[in-house]
């Protein structure tokens, strides 16, 4: 087995809110192989964005370790750490409206990373910026324009060029298409796929659109209330979910196909997602789970391998113990 590019071990991130602690990410372990796309799905508040941010040092982790190419990443990022790792790891943000500085032109935004993180001459930086502008499907006329002059899809293209101009190995894409219209989503997914192939990128693709995650990613990781509940090959997880939460999530996903919708079995989706301030003692899904047993309310199940073959499925559920 290859050495993973990213290896996350028992990562936790808690936020202090007065007397309370928000358990945004709790004891998450996940390894990502070079060249693979891992899709991270879950509902709002499940901690998927926090996991992405903590991974890149944008949020300081509470506990756990992260390894990049076998070497341990710092517990606390200082300026020199950001400088060092910016060339290897980057992030594409969800909201193309608020993640671009409105007072900088597209050219300045895209070229900034090179000004900060390389010793290229001004002329070289200008060339590379133009090259990237074209690579992401914009043109030279757009260089001097400001973010408000672009559509959502075009802004996301700028965000992609900004993240990739340093040619990182690993990119966290945090809901890169959620704010875009359907026809534009496919444009951006296509662009990411093309760049992934030509640059040999490894991606953590965070999204809540299950169909899109299945389409984009090699493996899928399902998160619920700060924990990973299931990890496996995307197609296998989608068509044969093991964890009851994954089953509910995929069963709730409406398909653009009327006859399949007509034959859909009604999901017995009950209850509300518990508050992150008050995480249940046992399995976090127990209060909504149709299969909950006594043990589920007391003991939090750990991720364990439930099938090998070509799947290597990990599931955190007492049903599989």
């Amino acid at each position: 087995m290859n050495k993973p590019l990213i290896d996350i071990r028992n990562l936790s991130k808690h936020f202090d809110r007065g007397r309370h602690k928000i358990h945004a990410v709790d004891d998450v372990s996940l390894s990502i192989e070079a060249g693979e796309i891992v899709g991270l799905v879950g509902e709002s508040g499940s901690g998927k964005s926090t996991l992405g941010r903590t991974l890149l040092g944008l949020d300081r982790k509470t506990a756990g370790e992260i390894f990049y190419k076998g070497s341990k990443l710092p517990a606390v990022y200082r300026a020199k750490d950001f400088r060092r790792y910016a060339r290897s790891m980057q992030m594409i943000f969800q909201d193309p409206y608020s993640s671009l500085n409105p007072r900088m032109t597209a050219g300045e935004i895209i070229g900034e990373a090179l000004r900060l993180h390389s010793d290229l001459s001004k002329a070289n930086i200008a060339n590379r910026t133009e090259e990237w502008l074209v690579k992401v499907g914009l043109n030279i006329d757009h260089l001097g324009r400001y973010p408000h002059e672009f559509s959502g899809g075009q802004r996301q293209r700028i965000g992609i060029a900004r993240a990739l101009i340093l040619e990182p190995d690993f990119v966290v894409c945090d809901e890169p298409i959620s704010a875009l219209d359907v026809s534009v989503q496919a444009q951006i997914v296509d662009l990411l796929g093309e760049l992934k192939r030509s640059l040999g990128l490894t991606l953590l693709f965070i999204a809540h659109d299950l169909s899109m995650v299945r389409y984009v990613s090699d493996r899928m990781a399902v998160m619920y209330l700060g924990s990973l509940v299931e990890i496996g090959r995307s197609d296998r997880v989608f068509f044969d979910p093991k964890h009851p939460y994954t089953e509910l999530l995929i069963g709730s996903n409406p398909e653009p196909d009327p006859s399949r919708e007509r034959s859909r079995q009604k999901m017995h989706s009950i209850g509300e997602i518990p508050s992150q301030l008050d995480i249940p003692a046992g399995c976090r899904f127990a209060n909504r789970c149709p299969h909950a047993m006594a043990v589920c309310h007391d003991v939090n199940p750990a991720l364990r391998m439930v099938s090998h073959e070509d799947d290597e499925r990990l599931v955190a559920c007492h049903l599989y113990e």
């Binding site: 359907v182 026809s183 899109m212 389409y215 653009p256």
Partner: peptide
């Protein structure tokens, strides 16, 4: 166009 721009899930 809309239909071919969005993923469907057929096994």
């Amino acid at each position: 166009g809309l239909k071919s721009a969005m993923p469907t899930n057929r096994q």
